[in-house]
């Protein structure tokens, strides 16, 4: 009697088992040593050949996004009578998205924003999301939904009801916040931006791609040029 070779488990079954095993290997109650390291657990072991962008910068980036969105809202709402709202809204982001998104050490962009027309359908958004997720140049992309932008906007302007009245929820712009994968070799930010423009600007739903330093105004980029 021949022995049948064991059937190869499906990748789904294998993944389920692997995740279960891996998850069960962690102590869910942190021990004292871990508690002491909670403040910044990653910093403990990670080599630091390149100074990291401070958490503060990313907080500022988030704040900038909010203010930027707020200006976008205002402009959209004020001009919502006509059909040029989406185009005009691009002027709003221009005012603020020119700073805070650069690595303070290298002066190079660490992320950028793809603004989406408020009336873009879910298929177009999914398509853009898929392209970003599959693009090796990017380590992360996050779609900031209308609901999320609106919620944060309302919190941010909770004490300014007149500003809130300007917002038409249906015309809130959404955007993708895209983070570059750290490059192993020096990159030419302008060439990289041009390539991204070429790849994404013409996609349905995209009305603006915004990089650090776009438009007028001050930039956080170190002034060493």
């Amino acid at each position: 009697m021949t022995i049948q070779p064991p059937e190869q488990p499906s990748i789904e079954d294998r993944l389920t088992l692997a995740l279960e095993s891996q998850a069960s290997s962690i102590k869910v109650t942190p021990d004292e040593a871990q508690i002491h390291n909670l403040a910044d657990p990653m910093d403990r072991q990670a080599p630091t050949p390149r100074p990291a962008i401070s958490k503060r910068v990313f907080v500022l980036v988030d704040s900038a996004s909010l203010i930027l969105a707020a200006i976008g809202f205002g402009m959209i709402s004020l001009r919502s009578e006509d059909q040029t709202a989406a185009t005009e809204a691009a002027a709003g982001p221009n005012l603020l998205c020119n700073s805070l998104l650069v690595d303070p050490v290298t002066g190079e962009p660490v992320n950028f924003v793809i603004w989406i027309d408020p009336d873009t359908g879910p298929e177009s958004i999914t398509r853009i999301s898929d392209l970003l997720d599959n693009d090796i140049r990017f380590s992360d992309s996050r779609y900031i939904s209308q609901e999320e932008v609106l919620r944060e906007f309302r919190e941010y302007y909770a004490d300014q009801p007149t500003v809130l009245e300007l917002v038409n929820p249906e015309e809130v712009p959404t955007y993708f916040q895209v983070t570059f994968r750290p490059a192993q070799d020096p990159v030419d930010p302008e060439a990289r931006a041009a390539q991204i423009e070429a790849d994404f600007a013409a996609l349905e739903g995209v009305f603006k791609i915004q990089f650090p330093g776009d438009g007028s105004g001050e930039s956080d980029e170190p002034d060493d040029s």
Binding site: K27, Q45, T48, R50, I53, T179, P182, Q184
Partner: peptide, 23 residues
């Protein structure tokens, strides 16, 4: 993302070895 940035220059983007004190 933070770990990725910090390990980028050493070409060690895996998070696996960040924590040596766990099973």
């Amino acid at each position: 993302r933070r770990a990725l940035r910090e390990t980028a220059a050493t070409d060690q983007v895996r998070l696996a070895e960040l924590d040596g004190d766990e099973p």
